[in-house]
Design a protein around this nucleic acid. Structure first.
Lengths: 210, 210
DNA sequence: ACTTACATACCAACCAGTTGGTATGTTTTT
DNA sequence: AAAAACATACCAACTGGTTGGTATGTAAGT
């Protein structure tokens, strides 16, 4: 039961897919290349995945699960004030902008750009990854709006999706510029928007007991 | 120079590339497919372009020129106040969110996502398209900052690039959701950020936080 | 005569996917 | 408990079609 010795071929293929698709894109990554990177044969590939498209779906699901677990385990949730949680989330996103481009850019966003027209299945899985991550933000935004009652605030869902849009766009620009600097700047401006939006017009320091 | 009768093979190839790459991506678009869509033979393709990569570079340059001309000719420049020009620019961008995804998404952004690691030449050309468009916005932002003197405003360049990031991210989300609605929402929130940033300071409460 | 602008025919490499097989469990029957 | 039946995980070799790119030809403009 306990198989700790070595990741199974399926897992190694998914990890190879995560790396290769983030660097090269989906269409430019061949099945042979994936097998070579994972150290398995083509037979193993098509044993675990019915097609290259099925691997794309599985890779998007794998991305949703791994990133979901990463953010769920992060400690920005510890802040009692939901707005503090959101700011700490942005701090975390900024801290994650390290290493090479393929180390911090989003697999789901890359997939969406490429396959939105050719593969509904991959599109749905990749969108699910983005959307479910936005869900976790939406909760905090909804609480922040309820608590701080800013004037003219958009819906929580819109704020959550906007946050994801800024991140996705920041990745595109980072790929153009070749480094994460521009992405960092974008996060700074997003942070300023939220500060301006939630800025107290009257100061209330009462803390909801939790 | 004036060949009005029928677009030359080169132009038809570039138009086909614009359409096909926006819908399918660069890697998923084959030379044969491009030739068929443009109604030319492979000989014509390789007469005008040394390689598929060279076509990618030319397509990015074509994109920069055509979109550059479109925005240069738009009438949002007529407003005397630079902030009005920026808001009218956002109105135009929102109005352009019509039709199918491949009709309003950005060729340069799509190219950047795909080829940032495999083709420095295409990356440079696509980034030049984004960057030169940001240049035109940067001018307006610089004037708006000088005129309205908002407190804590970022650099004009950062604002221009942030605007592009929001647009690029909005396109990614639109591809995930399958329609432009989410992109429209993102533009709305970007507009709100600029309103908050440039709005004249009213003194209701002093916030001594840094 | 010479360049430009195409067209036709072709190629080696690569592509996703298939085939037939082996080794190793696991479950069911006897 | 032993044998039979089945399932899982993987592999090496192969296939038909597609890929980007080339070699060669031709017709028109200058």
């Amino acid at each position: 039961m306990a198989k700790v010795a070595r990741p199974t071929a399926r897992t190694r293929l998914l990890e190879a897919a995560r790396r290769l698709i983030r660097t090269q894109g989906f269409a430019a990554t061949s099945v042979d290349e994936l097998c070579a990177a994972a150290g398995v044969t083509k037979g193993a590939f098509f044993h675990h995945f019915a097609s290259k498209e099925a691997l794309g779906v599985a890779a998007a699901d794998f991305w949703r699960e791994t990133t979901g677990a990463l953010f769920a385990a992060a400690d920005y949730h510890r802040h009692p004030d939901p707005l503090d949680r959101i700011m700490a989330y942005l701090d975390l996103r900024e801290a994650l902008l390290a290493g090479e481009l393929q180390d911090f850019t989003c697999l789901a966003g890359t997939l969406l750009q490429e396959v939105h027209h050719s593969s509904p299945a991959i599109t749905a899985a990749a969108w699910s990854a983005v959307s479910s991550h936005a869900d976790t933000l939406e909760t905090d935004f909804a609480e922040a709006i309820a608590l701080h009652a800013p004037a003219g605030a958009p819906e929580a869902r819109q704020l959550a999706l906007y946050t994801q849009a800024v991140l996705q766009g920041a990745f595109v620009l980072a790929k153009g510029q070749g480094d994460a600097g521009v992405a960092r700047d974008c996060l700074g401006l997003l942070r300023q928007y939220l500060v301006l939006l939630f800025q107290p017009r009257r100061r209330h320091e009462n803390d909801p007991s939790t």
